[in-house]
Design a protein around this nucleic acid. Sequence first.
DNA 1: CGAATAATTGACGGGGTTCAACTCCTGTGG
DNA 2: CCACAGGAGTTGAACCCCGTCAATTATTCG
Lengths: 250, 250
Amino acid sequence: MTVTSYVRCSNCAVSKFCLPHTLSSEDIGQLEGVVQQKRVLHAGETLYHTGDHFEGLFAISSGSFKSVVIATNGDSQITEFSFPGEILGFDAYHGKTHNSFAEALETSSVCFLPQAQLDLLSQKVPALQQQLYNLFSAEIQSNNEFLLMMGKRSAEDRLAALLINISSRYSQRGYSATHFRLSMSRTDIANYLGLTIETVSRLIRRFQKEGLIEVSQRDITIIDLVGLSELAGTHCTYEEHVPDASSGTA
Amino acid sequence: MTVTSYVRCSNCAVSKFCLPHTLSSEDIGQLEGVVQQKRVLHAGETLYHTGDHFEGLFAISSGSFKSVVIATNGDSQITEFSFPGEILGFDAYHGKTHNSFAEALETSSVCFLPQAQLDLLSQKVPALQQQLYNLFSAEIQSNNEFLLMMGKRSAEDRLAALLINISSRYSQRGYSATHFRLSMSRTDIANYLGLTIETVSRLIRRFQKEGLIEVSQRDITIIDLVGLSELAGTHCTYEEHVPDASSGTA
DNA sequence: CGAATAATTGACGGGGTTCAACTCCTGTGG
DNA sequence: CCACAGGAGTTGAACCCCGTCAATTATTCG
């Protein structure tokens, strides 16, 4: 676990998805005084465990994570996959104890935002308080949309929606929307979507047969972005232009 | 729609579930200056619609609500049922537009908390800022637990968990934990749990046959609280003592 | 290379949906 | 008071998506 003491939000590639997004450069300067360290985790290492005392939030600067809640009977549910610029730990602000754990899916690095100092600073800087409210709120909103998926959509729809969601998040961060490497296992995908590995495996196969995607292990190439989006039923937000619908399937 | 201009949080029966909970009486005094009006809605009336501009939060002072998100293909998902003391509108803080709608399930009243004034006050009063963070966070946490249910538990478990959840919330508010009247229809319950009406109806019947509950229309009497809790798999939080397990089913 | 884990594929069964008919409430108007 | 309409809820029968169980293949790692 490597520690670097200096953090410069102003230089960070993903600051526009992160806390600094709506802040002035002056405010960012103050925030940089609060962000204490950058930590590197390797695949499988956990950022915090269930039951850990809540000390502050983590901002992902590279890599990806899964957040997992565990039921009293032992079974677990991945509640979200997180990418650079996104914040981990919001669910623990209340209660002061983490009720989920966060695990790195690949080599990843995070910035640590101590709660006490963050609270103090957000008391002084309205824009920061606002941005914290915004991020909290966005988390609730995306959670609601996910609930809709889990409650109403078929296995096929859910997998399509996940692929489109990941694609769009990579795209927003400047990577290809149509070719990427999944950082999570089939098991993780199945757990997240409330399905079994077998079902996920069969669906991936079917998507290939139908010419929607090309798959080699965890490498995904989306062939028919429009077709997949229609299955997903979500209007994804891509940075660049949305491909025209002329080649869309029925 | 009736409007009363004076709101006294200090006298409110549900303040301990609401924003004032952790505030000093002095801070509550300031909060009362922000809470502008009390509105009464009848069953079926909506507090806000999808797409409405976000103006502020609503605190439920009596009655109950459902929050509903709508997919682009038209189908909808109830994301939560809300009771007195709970806050509505958190999901819209980000984006400034409601992406869900809230509908009264029975005659209900709400207090309105204008965002602009709430932001200003929370900037001055640390305890209020903290409490807002807490409520945001609690919302995310309960959302995560609900996701676990939707992803991993059977129809039977989900219905049991809902009944236990409602029972415990009534109990916390000083009502009977074992006898209450559901304010939501079977259709609402089914939608919330990601099931069909028929399944819910059959399960209710089965619970009756098994001696877990007694049902007459929307009147519920829980006969075997322990047995139902075991099905639900959740450790519910009751105000008073938890009934001893000696009469529990296997 | 061999063990262990991850992923695929097939056969089968069941929990829950779908479709359909029926009953029960509730309100309304003659 | 009753008739009637209409929504809400119940019940039954058939189907099917997806989970379960099991065997096989691929991949990673010591």
